Amino acid sequence: MPSITPLPGTCAPDAVDAWHATVVRAHRHDLPGVPEPHRAETAARMRVPAPRSEQVLLRSAAPAFAGVAAVRLFTDPANREVARLCRLTVDPEHRRRGHGVALLAAVRATCEAAGRRTVTALVDADGPGAAFGRAHGFHLALPLTGYVLDLPDVVPPADAAAPGAGPDQAAELPPGHTLTTWDGPVPPRHAAAFAEVRRAMAQAPTGRRAERPPDWDVAAVRELATVCRRRGQSLRTVAIIAPDGAVAAYTEVVLPTSDAPRARQSDTGVAPAHRGRGLGRAVQWHMVRLLRAHHPELRQLVAVVADENAPARAVAAALGYRVERRLGLFEARVEDLPAAPGTAGRAG
């Protein structure tokens, strides 16, 4: 079995270059037609862990960086026994030589050392990652779909043709409701209300899976913005404020770099008491207007939606999103993953 070596969190530039080269070669092979990640985005993810997490980076030793893996170890109480396999990538030229299994065995050892019992992974449902995962202990826990919105081609849907309903004007709002936007951290006057609606959105469909949504308090909301800033990303939020000061609806977009052609819709939510009034679509139309006005370099906005989340899928269709690829959140018991030779457990 190939040897696996951990990487320090403060990765040297040459290590980032080698890691990114492996990622790009695999991306071009597995996802032709999908824009590849920018090096700056790869470096940011390698050096700055996700919110409320620690991170372990692994690579094949010989050939160096023939395969790479990133493991997220959650630190929030609800996910203390869960890890996320954020990446397991093998260079196409070095596949079927044991690098993937060796990396997965190292992931198992990492999880066991951290007291994790379950590991999850987001992969393309029809790609080699899904087949590899199923062959080594993973099962599909939550079907998802990746959507893309071509920003230059966006036009208002037929049922939003009234003045103010398209992407270049804010949709009409219920009386007393107002639109607001911010970049980076939530303003203090909206922090508590924003955390409250985020907690409510934790009830969105998640399937039967071990990984639980974060406990969205004010500190967690602010930490997300801090992580984006440390990664060199821009976090932009559009929200609708109800007359009582509650956040009735919101949408967030992450711009990975200043010149990236794609932005990622991080989250969209409508408070339970305000659903059924078109507010989810309103905040997203307003976000499209802002992105087109202030970020002309952006060509596409991407989003991932659970297949069972019918309201979110309906909004995506109304805005003009198209399906790009099928995804899945896969899950495995750590004890079912391949074990390194000479250790207890099932051999890979």
Rank of each mutant, 00 (worst) to 15 (best):
A165C: 12
A225R: 07
A220Y: 11
T251S: 10
D153H: 14
E223A: 07
G176V: 11
P163I: 13
V186Y: 04
V186C: 15
I240P: 04
R212Y: 01
A171W: 07
A160C: 13
M201F: 02
A239E: 05
G146L: 14
Y250F: 15
P243C: 13
P185W: 02
T226D: 15
L224E: 05
G164I: 05
W216L: 11
G146C: 10
G164P: 08
A220H: 14
V253C: 12
T181Y: 00
G245C: 11
P205M: 05
T237R: 01
S234C: 06
P187E: 05
A204W: 00
A165F: 04
D159R: 13
V186L: 01
A158T: 08
P185I: 06
I241K: 03
D168E: 13
Y250I: 00
A204C: 03
V227C: 07
I240N: 05
D159P: 01
R262E: 14
G176R: 10
A239R: 04
E196V: 04
G245W: 08
V247C: 09
G166Y: 04
R231S: 09
P174S: 11
A171V: 05
H190F: 15
A165R: 10
H190E: 12
P157Y: 05
Q169K: 12
L151Q: 09
W216E: 09
D183S: 15
V197A: 04
Q233W: 06
A162K: 02
L144V: 02
V148R: 15
V247S: 07
D215Q: 14
V227D: 00
V218H: 04
A171P: 15
H177G: 11
A158C: 02
G207H: 01
V218T: 15
R208T: 12
A192R: 05
P243Y: 11
L173C: 06
D153Q: 14
V186P: 00
R199D: 13
A191R: 05
D183G: 10
D244S: 08
D153C: 11
P187H: 08
G176T: 14
C228D: 02
G164D: 03
S258C: 01
L255R: 11
V148M: 01
D150G: 04
T251V: 14
P214M: 00
W182V: 10
L149G: 03
P243V: 13
V247M: 08
R230F: 00
A195N: 07
L224T: 11
A160L: 13
T251I: 07
R222I: 01
A246N: 06
P213F: 04
V186N: 03
V155G: 03
S258H: 13
G176P: 10
L255H: 05
R230I: 00
D259V: 13
A141Q: 00
A202C: 08
